[in-house]
């Protein structure tokens, strides 16, 4: 796959379709990878592809001023769809180099949680697709069952217990904003945490401010989050942010029969309205 990836990247650069390729490169002699930005054809040999390519590189599209090609796994490509839907990027400004992906490993060599329930081993949107020689293993049915379990476990707890659980989690937050910064869909030029008139969210790391921050962020991603799981991966204190996102994902699915990141033509439910909406305030 790597050879094919490098070849495609080289072609894209040579044809002038892109000025830069955002991909993965080896991190300083270790097994892990780090993002790379390639502008010259002879540098494509830096590109790698394996189970250490955890990052969602579409993150960098929001600050790219050049026509770029981006290496995207299935989960990452969903973010491109959302960015197109939200008019943050133009479809023809980006070349998606889709890669078939079985699973990715965390720093300790464990399979990432999100990969265990993955339903997009092959990206839903791409310009070039790099296929795997070995087909991915799971059946769709198994995946769906697991998906439901994760949310159900949380829902089964009484409200007070859920509240205690989240308070304990939010208490740890150090407000490094890595969750926001790594998120491809957190692109607000001015984040609500930066606003002071009024001050919606207390800026210091206290339980009150932390709760407000994490809850507001989750809500702002409702119906938009594509579950790339990067926020949870980068959280230095281990707040299980995916649990929040998955719950909202489920609510959106139930209420609007909508799954984010699949169809660039569709309108995300919370940016859309219909005349026959049952809620008074919408009309």
């Amino acid at each position: 796959m790597v050879e094919e990836l490098r070849k495609k990247a080289e072609e894209l650069l040579r044809s002038g379709k892109v000025e830069a390729i955002i991909g993965y490169q080896r991190s300083n002699g270790s097994a892990s990878t780090t993002p790379c930005f390639i502008e010259a054809e002879d540098e494509v040999t830096r590109l790698v592809w394996d189970e250490h390519c955890v990052y969602n590189l579409t993150l960098y599209l929001k600050e790219m001023k050049k026509k770029a090609g981006v290496v995207a796994k299935g989960c990452d490509a969903k973010a491109v769809v959302a960015l197109i839907q939200e008019n943050q990027i133009e479809r023809d400004q980006v070349q998606i180099i889709g890669v078939e992906c079985e699973r990715q490993l965390d720093g300790k060599g464990r399979v990432l949680e999100k990969c265990k329930t993955c339903q997009v081993h092959i990206p839903g949107i791409y310009d070039v697709l790099i296929r795997s020689k070995t087909p991915t293993s799971k059946t769709e049915k198994e995946e769906l069952a697991e998906e439901d379990d994760a949310v159900r476990e949380l829902e089964a707890k009484p409200v007070s217990e859920r509240w205690r659980f989240w308070q304990k989690q939010f208490e740890k937050c150090i407000r490094c904003y890595a969750c926001r910064q790594i998120c491809p869909l957190c692109y607000c030029p001015e984040c609500i945490t930066e606003k002071t008139m009024p001050q919606w969210i207390l800026p210091s790391p206290s339980l009150k401010g932390n709760t407000a921050w994490n809850v507001v962020r989750a809500f702002h991603l409702a119906g938009r989050c594509v579950d790339c799981g990067e926020c949870e991966r980068v959280c230095p204190v281990g707040i299980p942010l995916r649990k929040l996102n998955k719950k909202l994902e489920k609510e959106i699915k139930t209420m609007f029969d909508y799954v984010p990141g699949l169809d660039p033509e569709k309108k995300p439910p919370l940016t859309d309205f219909r005349m026959d909406d049952p809620e008074e305030f919408v009309r």
């Binding site: 993002p35 930005f37 150090i174 904003y177 890595a178 401010g209 230095p236």
Partner: peptide, 24 residues
Amino acid sequence: LQCISCGICRYLCPTCHCFDIADE
């Protein structure tokens, strides 16, 4: 280019000491 502008390295650094002051 790679930097995502988060605060992790600064916050976890034992010598980084920049601070803000605000009224809550």
